[in-house]
């Protein structure tokens, strides 16, 4: 079981999603916008901060650094954390659906 770190921020979740495929900074931002169909826009500051933290927590790794751009990709541990979070979110939605069904609105 992946250690319980509490809920992920949206930024973390989407970055991990985007890095299921090796990508570099700017491309990550574009990928996130695409994956979320324009709903989530990521600023460079948020991206930079989260990338550093995810790397520290070994959820992502540096694939390649050609001096100008750093390419990251998700690690096995990162995939585990991502699946965990996905399941958590799904459970949230599922529980909510039941409640919404009971409502009269």
């Amino acid at each position: 079981m992946a250690k319980d770190r509490g809920p992920m921020t949206e930024a973390m979740y989407y970055i991990l999603l985007a890095l299921c495929q090796p990508r570099h900074g700017y491309a990550i931002m574009a990928a996130i916008e695409e994956i979320s169909r324009g709903r989530v826009v990521m600023g460079p500051g948020t991206l930079y901060g989260v990338l550093n933290r995810l790397e520290k927590e070994k959820l992502i790794q540096l694939e390649e650094d050609d001096g100008r751009r750093k390419t990251y990709s998700i690690t096995a541990m990162g995939r585990l954390a991502l699946v965990d979070e996905y399941q958590r979110l799904t459970a949230l939605v599922k529980d909510g659906k039941g409640l919404a069904g009971e409502g009269e609105e």
């Binding site: 949206e10 930024a11 990521m42 600023g43 500051g45 901060g49 989260v50």
Partner: peptide, 13 residues
Amino acid sequence: PEIHTDPQEQAGT
């Protein structure tokens, strides 16, 4: 986009 788009993350900075 703004440098910080996630207020939660920004709080950490």
